[in-house]
């Protein structure tokens, strides 16, 4: 089982520090970065994949510095950008053929591989359509297809569900579930529902630092007894900035019962996300496993 380890990763842009010594480990399965916009999710993905140079720290695959591995590391990598750039004049086939060649897939296998990945993302009928005619969701699916082409060992998805409708999001989850047993999958998102039922390991980020790092169940157990649902007529009793809304419920994080009719809730990943933003002290110590 391969292990991808990020050790004390630092990234600075001039005076601004985007990553403040991130340490975490990923194994075969689905690993997720969760955090708000500006937390550093895309930056860390870019550093792991080599798109941007790191300022400090290292990334190691089975103990070997990935930036010394060069082509060997890149062969194992599939990366889907937050907004994947395309060649508008290309067809879906052309685009995947180009990236198939860039990934080093043998010419004789490329066509079959293209058909396979397009079928997985429900774009088989659009094989010879120009990308400029694709909707946003179709482009996102094409980007996912490009990422999984060639069956890389490490798959990195940056906000993969942006632009996907609910059915397509579920389809994406199904694809991840199929691949999880043989790949290290890293997904970054601020949409909890992307990963809530499939994630094996979760890293919660905020302002360039790791707030929590463990499997979702353990992290949820950490916040058991802290999540309360507040009736609408009692909302005025607590500061609004401490309230978040999930479906039709208003919730808050508190060690004690915050309002007379507040109801204790079983924590979900969504609650975990908001805990990470509202009450970082709960996870003081960062990495827990």
């Amino acid at each position: 089982m391969s292990v991808l380890r990020v050790e004390d990763l630092v990234k600075r842009y001039g005076k601004k520090t985007a990553l403040r010594g991130i340490t975490c480990e990923f194994t075969t399965g689905i690993n997720a970065f969760l955090g708000p916009n500006g937390a550093g999710k895309t930056t860390i993905m870019n550093c792991i994949s080599g798109v941007i140079p790191k300022t400090g720290g290292g990334v190691f695959l089975d103990g070997v510095d990935v930036f010394k591995m060069g082509k060997d590391y890149r062969r194992k990598l599939g990366y889907q950008f937050q907004s994947q750039p395309f060649y508008p004049g290309y067809t879906a086939h052309d685009f995947l053929e180009l990236f198939g060649l860039l990934k080093g897939i043998q010419k004789e296998y490329i066509d079959s591989e293209i058909k396979r990945v397009l079928e997985l993302v429900n774009l088989s009928e659009n094989l010879n359509d120009k990308i400029r005619s694709f909707s946003g969701g179709m482009k996102q699916r094409l980007a996912i297809a490009q990422t999984i082409m060639g069956s890389p060992d490490i798959l990195i998805f940056d906000e993969p569900s942006a632009g996907l409708d609910p059915f397509e999001r579920e389809q994406f989850k199904r694809i991840m579930m199929e691949l999880k047993d043989r790949c290290i999958i890293i997904i970054s998102t601020h949409i909890v529902s992307d990963i809530d039922t499939i994630c094996d390991r979760l890293v919660v980020l905020n302002k360039g630092s790791v707030i929590a790092n463990d499997c979702p169940d353990k992290l949820c157990r950490k916040i058991e007894g802290l999540i309360w649902s507040i009736p609408r007529d009692e909302l005025s009793m607590i500061p609004l900035k401490e309230v978040y809304f999930e479906d039709t419920n208003a919730k808050t994080v508190s060690e004690t019962k915050p309002t007379p009719n507040a109801v204790l809730q079983t924590p979900t990943l969504n609650d975990l996300y908001f805990c990470g933003q509202l009450r970082q002290d709960i996870f003081a110590g960062g990495e827990t496993a």
Binding site: S49, G50, V51, K71, R74, R75, L77, Y79, F81, Q84, P85, F86, Y87, F99, L101, L102, K103, G104
Partner: peptide
């Protein structure tokens, strides 16, 4: 400018051959 080059750089073939 379109950032396509970033995708190409991290591919197995890499930037040089492209």
């Amino acid at each position: 400018q379109s950032r396509r080059f970033a995708s190409i750089r991290i591919s197995a073939y890499g930037a040089k051959k492209y």
